[in-house]
Amino acid sequence: MNNVFVICEMDEGKVADVSLELLTKGRTLANTLKCKLEAVVLGHKISGIEKEIIPYGADVVHIGDDARLAPYTTLPHSAVINGLFAETKPQIGLLGATTMGRDLGPRVSSALVSGLTADCTALEIGDHEDKKAGKNYKDLLYQIRPAFGGNIVATIINPDCRPQMATVREGVMKKEIFSPNHKGEVKTIDVSKYIKPEDLVVKVIERHMEKSRVNIKNSSIIVSGGYGMGSKENFNVLYDLAEAIGAEVGASRAAVDAGYAEHDRQVGQTGITVRPKLYIACGISGQIQHTAGMEDSAMVIAINNDVNAPINKIADYVITGDVMEIIPKMIKFYKKNSK
């Protein structure tokens, strides 16, 4: 049986959020395809990890527990996945679009000569007719992603090659327990069967993990600034507003590229996807690259001096004018009325 596989990633001893999100999506895809959902976890000292995975709907969990698999390096992981995929022949293989998934995914897809689509924002099942070749394909994975700086949305398919592989960023899919009583089978991977000595040539000498200081993903209000803020100094008014109303500060890619804000504040296709109850977009024009990461916000306020900015079209409130004048007024009137 050709099943749906999710390659899970470990994050500080736990299964990463992005992997649980993919399991949730994988469960839906497996239901549509009437096949099983299988998970793969590779690491060291991870016994019992299936308990975190099976409630998300995995029918089978493949566990590779070996010192050579932690910390992550490319070749031992790709050797195991290549071997496992060659034997189990998945129809779909999903990975998180993390530094690990984006390192491992292409290596595996190249070795197995299968297609891979990066940073998908939607995954669906559908049919395809190749009129030229006169072929009909049933139940392909539609890998949907913005491209060309987010100005177009492309639907990619892999008609003939398996597995159909895709990476998805954290926060794009919803994480949902399928059933706390779901039953899943654990299979132990014989890691030594796949890893060769020459796979161990790259060694991690040192690793410094920083606790993420910024937590915009879980913030219910986000004040975001774009290139239109004009400077790093001007971003300070956004921090002032955020502090006053209990929000986090986000930024568009253009603002991050210009050095106005740190990278971990970036909202959008190549940054973080957020769903706050209020999103205040200041000096952001609203290219799809950005809106892809915030369009599910419950309410959007756009503050911009450009009447025609695309962001205005998805905003609930549009304030046209100078951000540097409007934000201090918002702080002032918030303080006045909240007392």
């Binding site: 897809s109 000569v113 299968s114 297609g115 891979l116 689509t117 395809h128 539609y142 890998q143 913005p146 987010g150 100005n151 177009i152 949305v153 492309a154 639907t155 990619i156 398919i157 892999n158 008609p159 003939d160 090659c161 609203g286 799809i288 809106t291 756009a302 695309p310 205005n312 079209k313 998805i314 905003a315 609930d316 409130y317 549009v318 304030i319 046209t320 004018g321």
Partner: peptide, 21 residues
């Protein structure tokens, strides 16, 4: 192995917004 099935140009769907001064 990957083929482009469909390309859609992104056109923003206008939502009814309140315009403030």
């Amino acid at each position: 192995p990957t083929k482009v099935k469909k390309i859609e140009n992104v056109v923003f769907q206008a939502k009814e917004s309140k315009v403030l001064s």
